[in-house]
Design a binder for these strands. Structure first.
Length: 662
DNA sequence: GTCGTGTGTCATTAG
DNA sequence: ACCTAATGACACACG
């Protein structure tokens, strides 16, 4: 089959070359299954990448280069490839350029927000609005977040739900203990109320679908569609619809939008719910029960102790375990090994997996940039415009430079004038001078000589393909150079049209063929047969005429075929250039994303350490990071669990992730 | 003389 | 069956 032969030779080879040059792996199945027409066409049908489409006919009928043969289908194909490349390059790790800024502010007994403790090192990009401590509680909720932080934090990308250290004032502690209950103030020991562990230990059901909220959060993060809801950030830290303090503090309000740039006015650990929700695994559903008494649920109490503990604390980020972060904030308390125990939500891990991979494997932005540079410079495919065409035709360049200024006709005329083959004017129909070389380009379906400026690689050609001619016929036919040089444009055009098929022309003359070869070749079959019928021709003449016609048509076909090949190569080179540019662009974007993710992880780490460092047990002693870790349950609760359990969870999480990727 | 390139031609195939 | 386009292969001319 022609299609198989053709496409599996030309088309497939070209694609192979192209794709190998750019280092792209082709998933043929993807194309075949995704109904992307180009590759399907290559294998299954018509493709203009290298097709038998009759370009010459297009040119003949539409005046040559006006219709560029560049394939739309090919463009479509490469567009599809580009998109696929983008997807592959990003590898699902495209995370919003996110910056988290969380604020921990406590309110004093008079109800005003105050920065009871100085910021302990976590950058408070927008901390000024709260640390004055003069804003009334409600004002903070309603105005502070919206005005003091919401605007400035719009650039921040991550979700940092607000914390409120004094939740109980708005939401009476009823069913569940608040975070502050397990976060006694530094001024005095606090005991964990009996009810502290109850929500987890007893499996108390939360009125809110925190999992759903978490899903929402993740979806929002993934789509980078986070929007600031300052009200939620400041005032709706706790669900106003639920009386459950725990829920109020550690869960998102069901309808609370996740904010990309949230400043945590009135921040309390309760608001960490949203932070943790971004990170912690849903597996904590089980953990909350299995954890037994070892689990401490971080819930606020009604005392101000929480305020003194977490006041003016910037929870700038989402809690990330150090092993994910790679860098530990040494200024924010004791080192907290593996604080999250790998209980990050799969989705989150999925998003950052690539980054982790990158950072852990040394793929930092600098190296990425270097990689990019190497890619650009050492791709094995130099596609700069000055280079690519060179291979195409060194003669093209030379001929362009040498003869670009001269018109085609002049070039041809000179070239053929120097030829010794002079042909006399033979018949009245236009077979004027016989200048085979001059006519070479005339029959390439480019009827307008000016179009040949686009074919510089042809200009220098001055070959004499009369090698099969009998020597005697080559001597006297061609006009003298002097006369050619003085030819008028009209004469040149006539020559242009008449001069071709030197050998056949001579043969025709020798055989006394009564009509020009141009007619023999170009007349339609009917007219051609009619022409033959008008003359009494011998069998030898008829045979020659048919040979002339056949060769003439085949000559044009060969020229078109070569031109088509050349166009295909040029288009492929151009497409490779485009793909190179796209790849470079995507690589740059990738580096930027990696950088953003790293920053976000650092903030998360800092926030985690900040929160953990402020936790106190019933004796007022800090928890050892070697023994405990913060976890976030799927129901939104922030809990303190033994590290061994956290590690176990982390391993489980990793296995789950690995399985998912398989 | 050799090599690369351009061209013409033939044979073949498919539409 | 014939015509034509397309194309691989080959030979030749030329620089």
């Amino acid at each position: 089959m022609l299609s198989l032969k053709k496409y599996f030779t030309e088309g497939l080879i070209q694609f192979t070359i192209l794709l190998s040059l750019i280092g792209v792996r082709v998933d043929v199945d993807t194309y075949l299954n995704s109904h992307l027409p180009p590759l399907r066409e290559i294998f299954l049908g018509q493709s203009s990448a290298y097709t038998q489409t009759q370009f010459h006919n297009l040119r003949n009928t539409l005046d040559g280069y006006v219709i560029h043969p560049k394939s739309v289908d090919l463009d479509y194909y490469f567009t599809a490839r580009r998109l696929l490349n983008q997807v592959r390059a990003l590898d699902r790790f495209q995370v919003p350029t996110t910056e988290v800024s969380a604020w921990l502010v406590h309110r004093d007994s008079e109800g005003s927000v105050s920065g009871a403790q100085p910021n302990t090192g976590i950058a408070l990009e927008n901390g000024s609005g709260l640390q004055d401590g003069t804003v009334p509680d409600n004002e903070v909720r309603e105005n502070g977040a919206e005005q003091g932080f919401g605007e400035e934090l719009e650039d921040l990308g991550a979700v940092a739900p607000p914390m409120n250290g004094d939740l109980t004032k708005e939401f009476p502690a009823a069913d569940a203990p608040s975070l502050t209950e397990v976060l006694p103030s530094e001024s005095g020991p606090s005991t964990v109320p009996d009810g502290l562990l109850s929500p987890l230990l007893t499996g108390t059901e939360l009125p809110f679908d925190l999992e759903q909220q978490w899903q929402d959060l993740m979806s929002i993060m993934e789509t980078q569609g986070m929007e600031v809801n300052s009200t939620a950030a400041a005032g709706t830290l706790y669900d106003s619809t639920g009386g459950d303090i725990l829920n109020a503090n550690y869960s998102l309000a069901p309808s609370t939008p996740i904010n990309q740039n949230v400043s945590l006015h009135q921040a309390s650990l309760g608001s960490c719910t949203q932070d943790f929700a971004s990170l912690f695994s849903s597996e904590m559903e089980n953990l909350s029960v299995a954890g037994s008494s070892a689990l401490l649920q971080l819930v606020p109490d009604n005392s101000t102790g929480f305020n003194t503990t977490f006041g003016s604390t910037n929870l700038s980020g989402i809690f990330f375990p150090p092993q994910l972060n790679g860098t530990v904030n040494e200024t924010s308390g004791p080192e907290l090994p593996d604080p999250l125990g790998g209980l990050l939500d799969e989705a989150m891990l999925d998003e950052i997996s690539l980054m982790d991979l990158a950072t852990e494997e040394g793929f930092n932005p600098v190296q990425a940039s270097r990689l990019e540079e190497e890619f650009d410079s050492d791709s094995g495919l130099s596609l700069d415009s000055s280079h690519s065409p060179a291979s195409l035709s060194s003669s093209e360049a030379s001929s362009s430079s040498s003869s670009a200024s001269s018109s085609f006709s002049e070039e041809g005329a000179v070239g053929y004038n120097s030829d010794s083959e002079n042909v006399d004017v033979e018949d009245a129909e236009g077979a004027v001078g016989y200048q085979p070389e001059y006519s070479k380009f005339c029959r390439m379906s480019y009827q307008n000589p000016s179009q040949l400026q686009y074919l510089p690689y042809l200009e220098h050609v001055g070959h004499n393909h009369t090698y099969n001619m009998a020597p005697r016929t080559l001597d006297t036919d061609e006009p003298q150079p002097a006369t050619m040089g003085k030819k008028s444009a009209k004469d040149k055009q006539a020559d242009f049209l008449d001069k071709q098929m030197s050998r056949d022309e001579h043969r025709a003359r020798a055989m006394k063929i009564p009509f020009p070869n141009e007619k023999i070749i170009n007349l339609p079959v009917e007219e051609f047969n009619e022409l033959l019928s008008k003359y009494q021709l011998s069998e030898a003449q008829l045979s020659l005429i048919r040979d002339i016609r056949r060769r003439g048509k085949n000559k044009m076909a060969a020229q078109n075929c070569r031109k088509r090949k050349l166009d295909t190569i040029l288009n492929l080179e151009r497409d490779v250039e485009d793909l190179q540019r796209d790849k470079s662009k995507l690589l740059r974007e990738k580096v930027e994303f990696l950088r953003s993710i790293r920053q976000m992880k650092q903030k998360v780490q800092n926030l985690y350490q900040e929160v953990f460092g402020r936790l106190r047990d019933e004796n007022g002693q800090p928890y050892s990071p070697n023994q405990y870790a913060l976890q976030y349950a799927s129901n939104g609760s922030v809990i303190l669990i033994p590290r061994s359990l956290a590690d176990q969870q982390g391993r489980r999480q990793e296995r789950k992730q690995k399985d998912r990727r398989k």
